[in-house]
Amino acid sequence: MTTLTGPTATRRLILQGAASVALLGLGNLPFGAAPARAAANDKYPEEAFKQKSEADAIKALYGKTAEPSDKIKLDAPEIAENGGVVPISVTTTLDKVTSISFFVAENPSALAASYRIPEGTIPTVANRLKMAKTTNVVAIVEADGKLYSATKEVKVTVGGCGG
C-alpha cells in the first residue's frame, strides 16, 4: 500500500469510496433486469473480466455452460518458459461460429480474451497471453448458439503476472 498520512487524506478516501459505491449502484441497475449477454452485443464485457474462476467467467460472458468438443483444435506449448508471453491459437471446424474466448484457469481473473467472429470471418485466432502459473488453458467456441470447449494444460516455469 502507498502511505497515506493525516486525517484529511483518509476522509477524502472515504468520501470518494462512498461516491463510487453510489455510482456503481446506479450503473448496475440496467444489468439487474436482464443478465448481460456480452457476446451478443457490442459492449465490453466488464463483469466477465472481473470474475476470478473460469466457471463464473464463462457464466458471466455467455450465461450457459460448455461441452467439450473434438472439433476445436487448441494449440499451446507443452511448457512455456516465460509465462508473460504464451502463444496460443484456436481453430475449429464447427459451423456458424460467433465467438471464441480464451480462459486461463488460475490467473487472477480467468477470462483473458474474447473475440467476436462475424459472418465471413474464419474461426481461427492466434494471440499471446499471460499465465500466472502452470494451469489449464480453455478455449470456448460459441457456434450456432451452443458452447463448446477445448482444454490444454500448459506448464509455466516463470509466471507472467509479476509476483
Partner: peptide
Amino acid sequence: FVADWGTAVS
C-alpha cells in the same frame, strides 16, 4: 473482427 481483452493479454 472484434477483440475484447483483459489484463491477461501479453
